[in-house]
Write a protein that binds this DNA or RNA. Structure first.
Length: 287
DNA sequence: TTCTTTGTTCCGGA
DNA sequence: GTCCGGAACAAAGA
């Protein structure tokens, strides 16, 4: 479930390990990701140098000399680094899922620094798309995205301006990538818990303080998650098995019937479905 | 066999 | 035209 923090953790570790490296070979085991990878894909990437790796929302962007490689990890996509010499796999992703099976390795990208990028994706809902650099500003996936939650312009002023005359519930608003871009189900659930706001509340009747607090909590939890994921990938000399520890900080996500973690609260976490998505909250302290 | 998981897209109704 | 929510979709594991 890669959301913004996980993608950012992957970006940072990739940047550290492979920035300025050159692509020397590509092998594809399965072209059928969310969008079928064209036959021309490999040829057009050979000899391209990785100049920069950036992130927009949950998208990873590889900046090459004249091309842009856009990657979305879908729901189970992972980018791993493999050392060519001994076939040891080193984690680049935050994943607490240590059960990575090589039968789901779909793409291998061999670099001139002795490392191989491996794309592993059980569900195959992720995708790789290649563009010319000159088309960058016209990439549909990126064009329609709302602002970054960690940016300064994601503030109460922005919130109030966009929420005017809208009735959508607050959970769906935060999930809406055209409003704010990068949050998924887990962090939305967690941020609403921290803010003591029930997910079904209409977005236009939150008080100004509630909005301020919610925005602050979103930024806080994203930064915290990034810092935790970062710590799990700091030493690439360790083998497989090392994993992010985000899940141990979940307060509501996947905590159905568990006692509310607020000391002052006697409630139990409830699970409901909002727009076909599992939603976890404490009915006692989230009002 | 059915249910669950995800982000995204599409569609019908208000 | 806009907003909203529900359904569909991709694949695989429990």
């Amino acid at each position: 479930m890669p959301e913004l923090p996980e993608v950012e953790v992957v970006r940072r570790s990739l940047f550290q390990m492979i920035n300025k490296a050159k692509i020397i070979a590509i092998k594809i085991n399965n072209r059928n990701l969310r969008y079928k990878i064209p036959k021309t894909f490999c040829k057009s990437l050979i000899n391209e140098k990785i100049l920069k790796i950036s992130r927009r929302s949950k998208y990873l962007i590889f900046h090459l000399k004249k091309k842009i490689l856009l990657i979305h990890l879908g729901m189970s996509g992972k980018l791993l680094l493999l050392r060519n010499r001994d076939n040891a796999i080193f984690k680049t992703s935050f994943y607490y899922d240590t059960n990575i099976k090589s039968k789901h390795n779909h793409i291998y990208i061999k670099l001139n620094n002795g490392l191989v990028i491996v794309y592993n994706d059980v569900r195959r809902f992720g995708f790789f798309k290649l563009y010319k650099t000159v088309q960058f500003k016209h990439i549909t996936f990126l064009k329609k995205l709302g602002i970054e939650p960690l940016s300064k312009i994601f503030n109460v002023h922005y919130f109030e301006k966009l929420v005017q005359n809208r009735k959508k519930n607050i959970k769906n608003l935060l999930m809406d990538q055209t409003f704010v871009s990068g949050l998924g189900n887990i962090y939305v659930n967690e941020a609403l818990f921290l803010s003591k706001i029930a997910p079904i509340r209409s977005c236009n009747n939150l008080s100004k303080n509630e909005k301020k607090n919610l925005i602050l909590n979103i930024k806080k939890i994203l930064k915290f998650a990034i810092s935790k994921g970062g710590s799990s990938v700091k030493d690439f000399k360790d083998t497989l098995g090392e994993s992010g520890k985000f899940q141990q900080f979940f307060r509501v996500y996947d905590k159905k019937n568990k006692k509310c973690s607020r000391i002052s609260c006697k409630g139990r976490i409830k699970k409901i479905i909002i727009s076909n998505r599992s939603t976890f909250y404490c009915p006692s302290c989230q009002i």
